[in-house]
Amino acid sequence: MARRWKRLTPSERVLVAQRYEAGETSIALAREYGVAKSTILSILREANVVVRRQPLTPEQVSQAAALYESGRSLSRVAAELSLKQDTIRLALKAAGVRLRPATGR
């Protein structure tokens, strides 16, 4: 089935920027509006909104640690959590998880 792309109206785009500036996350907004996080970030950049860095929640770090410690690779954990590998690596290091040597694959 082909993916249906959703376009936000100009008023929705303004509301997205306002809600983000009020503290809502780009991930929450993307889910609510049914668009990709990258779409939300593009809307914010177009509106000249400063994008906040969004660290992983304690629950995400705990889940990542559990997956990694069960034997999954960093790249596999990142894929399962829809995050970047480096984000996972840094979060696990900061949480005190001992990282295995890279396999080089």
Rank of each mutant, 00 (worst) to 15 (best):
M1G: 15
R3S: 09
R3W: 08
R4G: 07
W5R: 15
K6D: 03
K6N: 06
R7M: 11
R7A: 13
R7W: 03
L8D: 10
L8T: 04
L8P: 05
T9I: 02
T9R: 13
T9S: 15
T9H: 11
S11D: 14
S11Y: 02
S11P: 00
S11G: 01
R13N: 05
V14I: 11
V14F: 07
L15P: 00
L15N: 11
V16H: 05
A17L: 09
A17F: 05
A17C: 09
A17G: 04
Q18A: 13
Q18D: 12
Q18Y: 06
Q18C: 06
Q18R: 15
E21R: 15
E21P: 00
A22Y: 07
G23S: 08
E24P: 04
E24Y: 02
E24A: 10
E24V: 02
T25I: 00
T25Y: 05
S26I: 00
S26G: 15
S26T: 09
I27P: 01
A28G: 14
L29P: 07
L29A: 10
A30G: 11
A30S: 12
A30E: 08
A30I: 00
R31T: 05
E32A: 12
Y33G: 08
A36Q: 10
A36S: 11
A36Y: 06
A36K: 11
K37P: 01
K37V: 11
K37M: 09
S38K: 06
S38G: 08
T39S: 15
T39M: 13
I40S: 07
I40V: 14
I40N: 06
L41W: 02
L41E: 13
L41N: 11
S42W: 08
S42H: 11
I43W: 12
I43V: 12
L44V: 01
R45M: 07
R45I: 00
R45S: 09
E46C: 01
E46I: 00
E46V: 01
A47S: 12
A47D: 07
A47N: 08
V49Y: 03
V49L: 07
V49S: 06
V49I: 11
V49M: 09
V50Q: 14
V50A: 15
R52F: 08
R53M: 09
R53T: 09
R53G: 13
R53N: 13
Q54F: 04
T57H: 07
T57R: 12
P58F: 11
P58N: 08
P58E: 10
E59W: 06
E59C: 00
E59K: 06
E59F: 03
Q60P: 01
Q60I: 00
A64I: 01
A64K: 04
A64G: 08
A64D: 03
A64H: 03
A65C: 05
A65V: 00
A66E: 15
A66D: 13
L67V: 00
L67C: 02
Y68G: 04
Y68A: 08
Y68Q: 07
Y68S: 05
Y68F: 13
E69L: 14
E69P: 03
S70G: 05
G71E: 10
R72H: 12
S73Q: 12
S73Y: 04
L74N: 08
S75V: 04
S75P: 00
V77K: 06
A78W: 02
A79L: 10
E80H: 01
L81A: 07
L81S: 05
L81T: 01
S82G: 12
L83F: 03
L83E: 06
L83H: 05
L83D: 02
K84Q: 12
Q85E: 15
D86M: 10
T87G: 03
T87R: 12
I88G: 02
I88P: 01
